[in-house]
Amino acid sequence: MKRNIIALALACAASGAAAAETAPGDVAFDYGAVAQPLTGQPGDPERGREVVGSKSLGNCVACHANSEMSDIPFHGEIGPPLDGAGDRWSEAELRGIVANAKMMFPGSMMPSFYKVDGFVRPGNAYTGEAADDSFGPLLTAQQIEDVVAYLQTLTE
């Protein structure tokens, strides 16, 4: 039995199943929702909370109020409150909204956090120059999963 478990673990590692990550261009949206996780690792709600509140990462509170994050000042009112997000949307819907909200809400002002192409004219940070080949998503696949895990904890 122990050998079978070890063999299965080695087979998964060799096939890349444990470290699988979906590239931004390969994300499958179904009416805005993304059913399959973007990584082989579960999301971490604590790390997701850091992304949501960090000005250098997600900075979600710049647009969304969130009473659970009363330790972070200056919540925005542009987007809907995050309170109850775990009740309002499924895990797949939350993943789709965070990855690219425009797939579910075409008129949304929310940034597409996991997108690398199809932009009109992306800039290279604050340089005034056009983006080069290193233009990547705003958040990593794992950060998306972490944010989704955090948002699922926000229930009413």
Rank of each mutant, 00 (worst) to 15 (best):
R3K: 08
N4K: 01
I6R: 10
I6P: 08
A7H: 05
A9E: 14
C12Y: 10
A13K: 08
A14F: 13
S15I: 15
S15C: 12
S15L: 15
G16F: 15
A18Q: 15
A19W: 15
A20K: 10
A20H: 10
T22V: 13
T22S: 09
A23V: 10
G25N: 06
G25P: 00
G25E: 08
D26N: 12
A28D: 11
F29K: 09
G32W: 00
G32K: 03
V34C: 00
Q36D: 12
G43Q: 11
D44L: 04
P45Q: 14
R47D: 04
G48M: 08
R49G: 07
R49M: 07
V51W: 00
V51D: 01
G53K: 11
K55F: 05
S56W: 13
L57A: 07
L57S: 05
N59S: 05
C60K: 03
A62H: 06
C63Y: 04
C63L: 04
A65T: 07
N66Y: 09
S67V: 08
S70P: 01
S70Q: 07
D71Y: 13
P73D: 02
P73F: 00
F74A: 06
G76W: 05
G76Q: 00
I78H: 12
I78T: 09
G84D: 14
D87C: 04
E91C: 03
E93M: 11
E93Q: 15
R95V: 04
G96I: 03
V98M: 02
A101P: 13
K102Q: 13
P106G: 05
S108C: 05
M110N: 01
F113I: 00
Y114F: 02
D117K: 09
G118I: 05
G118C: 03
V120I: 14
G123V: 12
A125Q: 11
Y126V: 15
G128V: 13
G128Q: 06
A130I: 12
A131S: 09
S134T: 14
S134F: 12
F135T: 05
F135V: 03
G136R: 07
L138C: 03
A141M: 06
Q142Y: 03
E145N: 01
V147T: 01
V147L: 07
L151A: 06
T153Q: 08
T155L: 12
